Computed example of a mutant assay.
Amino acid sequence: MSREIQLTIAVAVISGAAALIRFGIGLLLREPLPPALTPTTARAREFLRACYNPHMPPEARLLSSFEAVYFCCLAVSEHIGMALEQRAHPDIRVVELAFRALGFPKKNWATMHALLDWRAYPISPQPKACTDEDAFLLARTVYLQTRQYLQG
């Protein structure tokens, strides 16, 4: 098989995989979000809903994903008993406590740390922390897990 045919097949496979991922995310976008349980998770839910807006710039969707995750982390940390009044926004300790409580794998931690770094300097020339899809999937996962955690 020639090198050109191999490259054509590779491009077709990658394009097909990307289309399947977009299709799966499209299904998630059409799936209704469960209602919020607290005022803090209601804020998270609103940020998560903003991620659905295809007319928003990618950076705004990325920031909305970050804020959705962060407000879920605030809800979990508050539920555990962490004092939040004097905390800066964002505070990495809030995120770490919540991610430990929710039992997230290190992959999710890495995505959130990348988003935290990006959020600190969103208009710098640095590349995006992760794809919009990865950020959205993390935000949706954190929201759903937070609901389960708060329900006991």
Rank of each mutant, 00 (worst) to 15 (best):
M1S: 10
M1T: 13
S2A: 14
S2N: 13
S2Q: 10
E4R: 13
E4F: 15
Q6T: 11
I9K: 13
V11E: 15
V11N: 10
I14F: 10
I14V: 08
A19M: 05
A19N: 13
A19E: 13
L20T: 05
R22S: 12
R22T: 07
F23Y: 15
L27W: 14
L28D: 11
R30E: 13
E31H: 14
E31Y: 15
L33M: 10
P34I: 04
A36C: 03
A36P: 02
A36Q: 02
L37C: 02
L37S: 05
P39N: 05
P39V: 08
P39I: 09
T40L: 15
T41D: 12
T41C: 11
A42P: 00
R45Q: 14
E46F: 09
E46I: 15
E46P: 07
F47Y: 14
L48A: 03
A50E: 14
A50G: 09
C51I: 11
C51S: 04
N53A: 08
P54H: 07
P54F: 12
H55V: 08
M56G: 06
P57M: 10
P57K: 06
P58F: 10
E59N: 08
A60Q: 03
R61W: 06
L63V: 09
S64N: 12
E67T: 01
A68S: 11
A68C: 01
V69S: 01
Y70I: 01
Y70E: 00
F71P: 00
C72I: 02
C73S: 01
A75S: 12
S77C: 02
S77F: 04
E78I: 05
I80L: 14
G81L: 06
M82F: 07
M82R: 14
A83C: 07
A83V: 07
Q86H: 14
R87A: 03
R87H: 02
A88D: 06
A88W: 06
H89Q: 02
D91Q: 00
V94T: 04
V94G: 00
V95Y: 02
A98M: 00
A98V: 00
R100Y: 02
R100V: 12
G103H: 04
G103Q: 05
F104K: 00
P105H: 05
P105T: 08
P105N: 06
K107Y: 10
N108F: 13
N108C: 08
W109D: 01
M112Y: 00
H113Y: 15
A114D: 03
A114S: 04
L115M: 12
L116G: 00
L116S: 00
D117F: 06
A120M: 10
A120N: 08
A120V: 10
Y121E: 12
Y121M: 11
P122R: 14
I123S: 13
I123N: 14
I123T: 12
S124E: 15
S124Q: 13
P125R: 10
P125H: 11
Q126P: 01
K128Y: 15
K128N: 13
C130S: 04
C130F: 02
C130V: 10
T131Y: 01
T131H: 04
T131Q: 03
D134N: 07
A135G: 06
F136G: 03
L137V: 11
L138G: 04
A139Q: 00
T141E: 10
T141N: 09
T141D: 05
T141I: 06
T141A: 06
V142L: 04
V142P: 00
Y143M: 07
Y143G: 01
Y143C: 03
L144H: 07
T146Q: 08
Q148C: 10
Q151P: 01
G152K: 15
G152S: 11
G152F: 11
